[in-house]
Nucleic acid binder design. Structure first.
Length: 372
DNA sequence: CTCGTCACGGTTGAC
DNA sequence: AGGTCAACCGTGACG
């Protein structure tokens, strides 16, 4: 089953039910939007349902991230042994303490932060169930028992970044912990809070970024693996027919193209997409379908899945790359966003700039999905 | 014609 | 090892 085949939507686009769109497409959606292309046109061009386009753009505007949310897993437990222990301590210290006071103290003492502090009702439950009558210390937990030592290294943390909460505070504290994934290098980077960037305009801030990009461009290659393998890319996408530019961003885009691992290959007949999809060399085992050419850079492949490396490291690349020109395929579109696009392009000779900027922007993202 | 929203069927991963 | 559950996904349809 590795090869889950993708399905084709009404627009002729390929997707995998239940799975996020490849990052390349997500990125492209945002880029196009930045260029001023209307969502409906983006939908048609990329062959992604407008609901999806709307969702991705909305999320981007809200969080600054193009990445999908963390899939699967359980929510982090808030009432860790450590928290329970503290609650118990507070209660013992002051039997008359109110749950809300305990809550405040947990925050004040740094036991929890505002994102993982238990609700008042949870605290009440803890007092009732786990601690029993505080008065009687023996309750459920042995205080001294250090059993609970702090095993819970801020459970939240990991999640935080995963979920990409705009969690400013977290980061810091978290710092220590994030390393959750063993395999994964901790790319500090992803910790970045999406929020921090200037939202929309960051994108527009092209110039600055551009520069940045260039530099990074080079880098891109280096890290290549950055994206969690999971996130995929459709090579094809990259090339979408954007009238825009054909220019070769060549190399870069490759990176962009990371292959998505799980994406299934489109059925042969499939439109444009399939074209690019040449099944590349990937070991199919994980990879699938969409993956194309990217292979090259995917090299390490497989398990790499798990290593989230830094998120979009390559983004740089991608952003730019995107427009690689492939002639035909897309041409198929109905009528390519006529004016909008044209106009846009025209207007900016440089063309892709915006995109670039975006890429840069994206940079900050964290890669939630990668979850371990 | 656009676009926000949501039910639906699906996948994932922690527990 | 396998099941449960809750999170997320994109599509498609409605308004």
């Amino acid at each position: 089953m590795e090869q889950t085949y993708g399905e084709v939507n009404q627009l002729g686009g390929v997707f995998v039910n239940g799975r996020p769109l490849p990052n390349a497409i997500r990125l492209r959606i945002v880029e196009l939007a930045q260029l001023g292309i209307r969502p409906c046109d983006i939908s048609r061009q990329l062959r992604v349902s407008h609901g999806c386009v709307s969702k991705i753009l909305a999320r981007y505007n809200e969080t600054g991230s193009i990445l999908p949310g963390a899939i699967g897993g359980s929510k982090p437990r808030v009432t860790t042994p450590n928290v329970v222990k503290h609650i118990r301590d507070y209660k013992q210290g002051d039997p008359g303490i109110f749950a809300w006071e305990i809550r405040d103290r947990l925050l004040a003492d740094g036991v929890c932060d505002k994102y993982n502090v238990p609700s008042v009702s949870s605290i009440s439950r803890i007092l009732r169930n786990k601690i029993g009558n505080l008065s009687q210390p023996g309750g459920a937990y042995d205080a001294g028992s250090g059993g609970c030592k702090q095993p819970a290294p801020q459970p939240t943390l990991p999640y935080n970044h995963i979920y990409q909460y705009p969690y400013p505070g977290a980061a810091p504290s978290a710092g220590t912990k994030m390393g959750s994934h063993p395999g994964a290098p901790v790319s500090a980077a992803h910790v970045s809070l999406p929020r921090s960037w200037p939202s929309a305009h960051s994108v527009s801030n092209i110039l600055g970024i551009r520069t940045f990009m260039e530099q990074s461009g080079a880098l891109a290659g280096t890290d290549g693996s950055a994206y969690p393998p999971k996130l995929e890319d459709w090579p094809s996408v990259n090339r979408t027919t954007f009238p825009a530019a054909g220019q070769g961003v060549g190399a870069l885009d490759k990176s962009a193209a990371e292959a998505d691992i799980k994406y299934p290959q489109p059925p042969p007949g499939l439109s444009a997409v399939s074209t690019f999809l040449s099944p590349c060399a990937y070991p199919s085992s994980n990879q699938a379908v969409y993956g194309g050419p990217g292979g090259s850079y995917l090299s390490p492949a497989h398990h790499h899945w798990q290593t989230p490396g830094n998120p979009l490291a390559h983004h740089h690349g991608p952003g730019v790359a995107i427009y690689g020109g492939d002639p035909a395929p897309t041409a198929a579109f109905k009528h390519p966003t006529r004016e909008a696009v044209d106009r846009k392009q025209a207007s900016s000779p440089g063309g892709k700039t915006p995109a670039d900027s975006l890429a840069a922007t994206i940079h900050g993202l964290s890669a939630p999905a990668s979850s371990s």
